[in-house]
Structures are given as C-alpha cells and as structure tokens.
Amino acid sequence: MANKKFKGTSSYVATDDLMMAVNAAVTLERPILIKGEPGTGKTQLAIEVARALDRPLHEWHIKSTTKAQQGLYDYDAVARLRDSQLGDDRVHNIANYIVRGKIWEAFASDEKPVLLIDEIDKADIEFPNDLLLELDRMEFYVYETKRLVKARHRPIIIITSNNEKELPDAFLRRCFFHYIKFPDKETMHRIVDVHFPNLKKTLLREALEAFYKIRDVPGLKKKPSTSELLDWIKLLLAEDIPPEALRSEDSRNAVPPLYGALLKNEQDVHLFEQLVFLDRRMHTR
C-alpha cells in the first residue's frame, strides 16, 4: 500500500514543518521525538496520526518509576511462586507468566501500528539508553523463554518530552526531532476554528487578543497554552459572554471574565490581579 501522507485532521491543525517531520519519520520508519511547551498538543499528535493514517494506536505513558523493561515484558515471578504453592499446573510453563508490555503489543500488531511513548523525560536518565537497540532493530530477546520477539511491522513510534531531563545523544541520533513552537495568531485562529466552527468572529478575535495579552504579562510562572485557551473559549461560550466584555479598554471590566481557566497558579492569579489593579488606577487618574 502506498504510504499515506499525514496532513493534519479535521480536529488537529498541523504546520508544514510538523507534517514534514512526521512524514519523514513514517517513510523511514524511525521514531520521532516531539518536544514543546505543555499543552501544545504533543500527545494529541499521536492520536491524530493514528486516526489520519488509519492505524491502531498503542499508548505507553511513562512515569518516574517506569523501567524500559516494562515496555517489553514483565515476568510475574510472584504469581508463579503462588501457583507453585497452590500446585497449579500452569507453573510448569514459564510462558504463562510472561506479561506483554506496550512495545511487545505494538510489535505483535497485525497491521502497522502507531506507538506513543508519552513523556519519556519523566523516567530515569538511563531509560532512553535502555531502549536504543529495541527502537533501532525493532526486536528484543525474552530471556525467560529464550525467544526473539521481532516486530511484524515496524511501528510508527512517536515519543514526547517536556524537557525535564536531557536525553542522551545516542538516543537523539536515532530519532527525527520536532519542536512544536507556540502557535502564532494565525495558526491559533485555525486551531480554534477547528474546535469551535461556529464561533462568532468578533468573540474569537477578542478572545485571542485577550489571550495573547495575558501570555505577554512578564513573570507568569505558567503561561496559558493552547489547551487552556480552548477550555476558556468553551467556558465563554457556555456562559454566553458577549465579545464586548473581553475588551480591556473599558477600565471597569479590565479583568477578562473566567480568567481562572487560563491562569492555573495562585501566584499568577495574584500577580495578574495586581497588574490589573495598577492599570485601572492609571486609567482613572
């Protein structure tokens, strides 16, 4: 089958550079590493790629305690020990106690799957190194059963990182890399359009205006991101707030309504209120 190209979907706006990176990774069957600010749709990308290319999706979410081995398989020795105590017949076949991990599942898939390794930077620093060979050759060895597991179809591997830890060079060399930069106003317009097709033009414009103004406030601990903007607009729509209320020139209404959806940090909210207060005083004088 000819390789389908990823061009974004009806619910996901992909920029040209993102499309190029994804298509290159899909064509060459190499992993792609996605970095970017939180909330710019890194995880969503894998879901949308799977949808657009019509592939099954396997998700592996990494935590600080996750080990590379867990993605391959787990040998449930405790269950075996218990079965031996109870005299279960299953105990003689060690394969009964090999539990498949997400990577194995993806390798065993009947058609070419998409494998998402989410937030790889959460794990130990050695984690990416432990997966080098598996990602390179798409095979691994199960020592307990002396069996080599090979990928039936090389999966499309999408790895996301929040940049909490540095990733080793050897790992980076094997990946394509893409940094999702924060969308500019025009792209953001398209993104919001995709999510809320019937949004009134004026409301959208005013909302974006207010949103970028808040992002520009210096000293914010966590700048609001795309996903927060979408939530906020959802709230604005639910509350049926008129676009005029978003215009900050009116000094009495300088605080955008429902800004709690945009600022998630107590200190940020406090800072923002202070700034608005100062601003209001300047105006009334």
């Binding site: 550079d17 792609i32 590493l33 980076l172 060399r173 890399f177 893409h178």
Partner: peptide, 10 residues
Amino acid sequence: YLARSCLVKD
C-alpha cells in the same frame, strides 16, 4: 524542515 528535523535535536 527535513534537514532540521534530521540534524538538529535541540
């Protein structure tokens, strides 16, 4: 875009 994705990882 392709070259950047291949050659620059930071």
